[in-house]
Amino acid sequence: MYQMLDPATLTVLITGATAGIGAASARRFALAGARVIGTGRRADRLIAMRDELGPNFHPLEVDVRDNDAVIAALAGLPEALAKPNVVFANAGLALGLEPAQRASLDDWEDMVDTNIKGLLYTVHATLPGMVERGEGHVVFTGSIAGDYAYPGGNAYGATKAFVKQFSLNLLADLIGTQVRVTNVEPGMVETEFSLVRFHGDKTKSGNVYAGIQPLTAEDIAEQVFFCCTLPRHVAINRIQVFPTCQSFAGMKVQRGEA
Rank of each mutant, 00 (worst) to 15 (best):
F242A: 05
V123W: 04
V139A: 06
G157P: 04
T114I: 05
I14V: 15
S247P: 05
R133P: 09
A125W: 05
T141L: 08
V253R: 01
D6K: 14
Q254F: 12
I144Q: 07
G33Y: 10
G200H: 02
F193Y: 10
T15Y: 01
R65W: 12
F140H: 00
A32M: 06
Q3P: 05
F88P: 05
F166G: 03
T177L: 13
E132Y: 01
A82I: 07
L53F: 05
R238M: 06
Y150L: 13
G211Y: 10
R180A: 07
P84L: 00
G146P: 09
D63E: 14
L171E: 07
T18E: 01
L13C: 07
A217E: 02
G250A: 13
R35Y: 04
Q223F: 09
S104C: 03
L60I: 10
A235T: 14
D113F: 12
I239M: 11
T159D: 07
H124S: 15
C228G: 06
Q246E: 15
F88K: 04
T122Y: 08
A149C: 14
G129N: 10
H58G: 09
F162C: 10
V123K: 03
D107R: 01
N154C: 03
S104G: 06
V179T: 08
A91V: 08
I21H: 04
N56R: 15
V138E: 00
A80N: 15
H233G: 02
G22Q: 00
L31H: 05
D66S: 13
I37R: 00
L170M: 11
G40V: 06
L74I: 15
F248H: 14
D147L: 13
L171M: 14
A100R: 00
P231Q: 03
N115C: 04
W108S: 08
F193D: 00
L127I: 09
A72V: 13
D63R: 06
M188Y: 08
V234M: 13
L119I: 09
R50D: 08
E190W: 07
C245P: 00
K252L: 09
S247G: 15
E109L: 14
A155H: 02
D51F: 02
V87L: 06
L31W: 04
F198T: 02
L93A: 08
S104W: 01
S205R: 07
R197W: 00
P59M: 10
F248S: 15
A73F: 10
L127W: 04
